[in-house]
């Protein structure tokens, strides 16, 4: 884990100069993490004729941002917050028995993988469509692979081990954002932005739309993107590091005093947004049945 991640928190994470530039890198469609092959339902909507031009696309993007975009933004913000809060936990104890002789798989409070699995399960519960869960996990796995080389950190190592089949994409994005030096708001912004740029680019390719027109649509969404990122962060209860949380040292030393912290860590996660888009579910599942598809999702 980079040194500045844990330390930055007390001083206010937005003060860290690295965040903004890192956000640009994370949100850039050129980030080599496999995102270019996902249309977020746009390919199927084009095939079915529910996206035929810029007007349909604008409505598609606005609806996607208000639902899946907001949910992924909130999950990314929560993951970023968790990553920052647990940056002090060394990755090494993972896989070893802890002080009480329990294995991490037993799910002790000291197990750094446990909150990641819980947060990942919150993403599962918000993704009813198995096709969307699969697409999200594939993208999460590829992002973690890429991020671990760009921004190596104990948090990313922990997450990769905690969810070996691939964490959900917003969870991976939040952890990567923290490792890159972003704060939860920036993580949320990257997630919200990704939720519309992928489908927009796909529509340009599939329908031959004027790329400037489509970028204008994205620019029109800028206020909504800000709102989504704000709403995502407002939905977080800042309970991840209550007073008395361990500052350093082996996790098991803090296990007892950490009891309250462990109880409250992520206590706000159940209430995170769960906005669902029934049409996106249908599109994602229909996409898998299309033998001539160009995009993964």
């Amino acid at each position: 884990m980079r040194q500045d991640i844990g330390e930055g928190r007390g001083a206010g994470m937005r003060d860290r100069p690295s965040g903004d530039a890192a956000l640009l890198l994370l949100a850039d469609s050129r980030l080599p993490a496999g995102g270019h092959a996902h249309s977020g339902g746009a390919e199927e909507a084009v095939r079915l004729g529910t996206i035929t031009g810029p007007e349909d696309l604008a409505r598609f993007l606005r609806g996607r941002l208000a639902t899946a975009g907001l949910v992924t933004a909130a999950l990314a913000a929560a993951a970023c917050e968790l990553a920052a809060a647990t940056a002090d936990h060394p990755a090494e104890p993972y896989g070893q028995a802890d002080g009480d002789g329990n294995t991490p798989d037993a799910g002790t409070d000291a197990d750094p993988a446990r909150p990641w699995r819980r947060l990942d399960a919150e993403a599962d519960a918000r993704t009813a469509s198995p096709a969307q869960r699969e697409a999200s996990r594939v993208q999460g796995r590829l992002l973690i692979r890429t991020a671990r080389r760009i921004w190596p950190s104990a948090v990313l190592d922990t997450l990769a081990k905690a969810v070996p089949e691939g964490a959900h994409h917003p969870i991976a994005l939040g952890a990567a954002a923290a490792s890159a030096g972003c704060d939860p708001y920036q993580a949320a912004m990257a997630a919200a932005y990704n939720s519309v740029t992928g489908p927009a680019t796909a529509a340009v390719r599939l329908l031959g739309l004027d790329p400037v027109t489509v970028h204008r649509l994205l620019a029109d969404l800028a206020p909504a993107l800000n709102d989504a990122a704000h709403a995502a962060c407002a939905s977080l209860i800042d309970d991840v590091v209550p007073d008395g949380a361990p500052q350093n040292g082996p996790a098991h030393n803090a296990a007892t005093q950490n009891g309250a912290a462990a109880k409250t860590r992520g206590s706000g996660w159940p209430a995170l947004p769960g906005h669902t888009a029934p049409a996106l579910d249908l599109l994602a599942e229909g996409h898998l049945n299309n033998p001539m598809k160009l995009f993964v999702s």
Partner: peptide
């Protein structure tokens, strides 16, 4: 098989994550 989202060159050159996976 790896799907390339209309851009086969991207998947082998600019963003190789899915192929490496």
């Amino acid at each position: 098989a790896v799907q390339t989202g209309c851009c086969p060159h991207t998947a082998i050159r600019d963003d190789i994550a899915a192929n490496l996976d």
